[in-house]
Design a protein around this nucleic acid. Structure first.
Lengths: 154, 154
DNA sequence: TATTGTTATACTCTATAACTATA
DNA sequence: TATAGTTATAGAGTATAACAATA
């Protein structure tokens, strides 16, 4: 009567894309923190630094929508990164409501340092997948998110 | 100088499995809530009801590990589901520390009702993927999570 | 009127540790 | 001594709405 560990019946959850994505994301974040051991910034901050590096002058609201962070929350994160001296915002002349974000030299150095620490972990295939499967998984996720065009490919 | 919306350079984030999973999960949950409009319970509660339905007598701690919910949090969720009359716990004779979970008749009815509401949404492929790609994405996620064996397959 | 960013509030989820009762 | 579950507390992330400045 009692379900044994390791041989669970996942039922319809095993076919639910949302559920699988939820578990996979938790797994990936656990692996990230285990591999980094404090050597890297929080995933959210790192993603902002990398996005501003790749898109200098990006507006706060555009960045918030891209990373699916609420504007109110983005304000706090940006402020903390500004206080840390990694980011600076400037008000464009053509729309004085907006804020355009740039990395400071320190922010650029931190983005490079953090990414080089994370790079090996992020590009190695997880233990449960072959390199080919991992590449295909990333490809399908980009298709799902309509992010086909990305950084370093022709 | 300013990055335009819609044509962002995702840089290394576009190759980061963890980042892609994070965005994909947010996308999937948004789609879930948009499709359900309050007609379904929260994803966390629904996953617990479905897991107890498929694995009657599963212990709380086993369920917590499977769903990657901390034991302390699982206690609260189970208590709320018990107060709602959907779940009951029993103490097995062979280990009086443990709690085995079962659905009440009301809980079974709620699991059936909620799943039938969610089913169409969860099994239809998302707009950005073909049915084949969606199936392959689910397959790769199960492989990534080592959940190959699941509910309704030989 | 609508939009950008800010502030304030509350709520959920999470993380941690101390506690009990059993094993 | 280790484990299952509980309690308490604090923190991070998130959601919401009201607000000021600008368009």
């Amino acid at each position: 009567m009692t379900a044994p560990e390791g041989r669970l019946d996942w039922g319809p959850l095993g076919d639910s894309l949302g559920f699988l994505l939820r578990l996979a994301q938790l797994e990936a974040f656990e692996a990230y923190f285990a591999a980094m051991e404090g050597a890297a910034p929080l995933p959210g901050s790192l993603s902002i630094l990398l996005m501003v590096r790749g898109n200098p002058g990006i507006r706060q609201g555009v960045l918030a929508r891209a990373l699916r962070i609420k504007r109110a929350h983005m304000t706090k994160i940006v402020q903390s990164l500004e206080q840390a001296g990694l980011l600076r915002g400037s008000v464009p002349a053509d729309d004085r409501r907006a804020i355009e974000l740039h990395l400071t030299p320190a922010g650029l150095a931190e983005a490079e340092r953090a990414w080089s620490a994370v790079h090996a972990h992020e590009t190695a295939p997880p233990a449960t997948l072959t390199a080919e499967e991992a590449a295909q998984l990333r490809h399908l996720l980009r298709r799902y998110l309509s992010l086909q065009e990305h950084g370093h490919e022709p």
